[in-house]
Design a protein around this nucleic acid. Structure first.
Lengths: 156, 156
DNA sequence: ACTCTGTTGGTCAAAGATAGTCAGAGTTGT
DNA sequence: ACAACTCTGACTATCTTTGACCAACAGAGT
């Protein structure tokens, strides 16, 4: 069995026992598995990425930690579909607006949230000197990031 | 538990009990927490800054003190200040997060909105190949755009 | 008033404690 | 053999805590 797989199972077991959320110390975990601390990052990157349905946050320095939140299976089907399939690498402002208004119609987000999301991807917000292609790729990333956070909060 | 967090909680508890204002002795507090006096300054700088919604004043010498005041502003005042003065042409992710969480504490935005805003300016969302300076200028624009949309809806 | 001295708080740099990144070496499946 | 995946270590970034030295203020003594 690969080390990465063991660490993955270990973390998933913790997630099952406790809740949809777990907090750990990178160094402790590395110590436990007798491996380099950066191995933990590798596992997080390859098995607990947003694409895999997880969100992670961390803090460095004294009392630092890594927190992993499971979004998979709890976020609505619709959101996961958008994140994983519908939204690709690029999204125009018009497409964003269309998606946002659909989500509002389906009552997945509130009207206020829709306004907020639209404001963030608006032409006005994006007024920096970069090619349109980059702006649209940025919009896609922003939308995924926001939808991911909505999926996270919708978990029961 | 981090020392800084304990001290932060301690001070916030005092603020809740009494009023929007609290006065303390740096040395006494340091004595109480068994730490270097300058630790208190660190806590003030990292958790009670204007961006966090607090003002501090102090006096040295005999009878010296540190006074911490929680700033109370109306939502629209706060938003206007942020849009017109605080946020300039550039804002780091950390600054964004700080401002957002402060808006949440002052109940100008909901927790869900805070999460959404933070997601939109996150490093994850900004993962396109442009210089950091541009990313921060983009963050500033996005924040202003989002705050303006909130200000608009708040006008009743 | 002026100065001296004790009592406070302020600053800053260094040390300590964590986590992140990335290139390259090692391993495995086809 | 080749490509993809795994693992490590050196270097970096960030957050916390401490300590040495500095600055300001009050009150006593002159």
């Amino acid at each position: 069995m690969r080390l990465s797989d063991s660490i993955e199972s270990f973390i998933k077991a913790m997630l099952n026992d406790e809740s949809d959320e777990v907090e750990l110390k990178r160094n402790e975990l590395a110590e436990y598995f007798q491996c380099a601390p950066s191995q933990i990052n590798y596992v997080l990157a390859t098995r607990f990425s947003p694409d895999h349905g997880y969100l992670t946050e961390s803090r460095r320095g004294g009392g630092g930690y890594i927190r992993i939140v499971r979004v998979v299976e709890s976020g609505s089907q619709r959101l996961m579909y958008l994140i994983n399939e519908r939204i690709g690498d690029s999204l125009s402002e018009e497409e964003c607006v269309r998606l946002i208004s659909q989500l509002k119609e389906q009552q997945i987000i509130t009207a206020d949230e829709a306004t907020l999301m639209a404001a963030s991807v608006s032409t006005r917000a994006m007024g920096i000197p970069i090619p349109d292609a980059l702006k649209n790729s940025l919009r896609a990333r922003m939308m995924k990031s926001m939808l991911m956070s909505i999926a996270a909060r919708n978990r029961t």
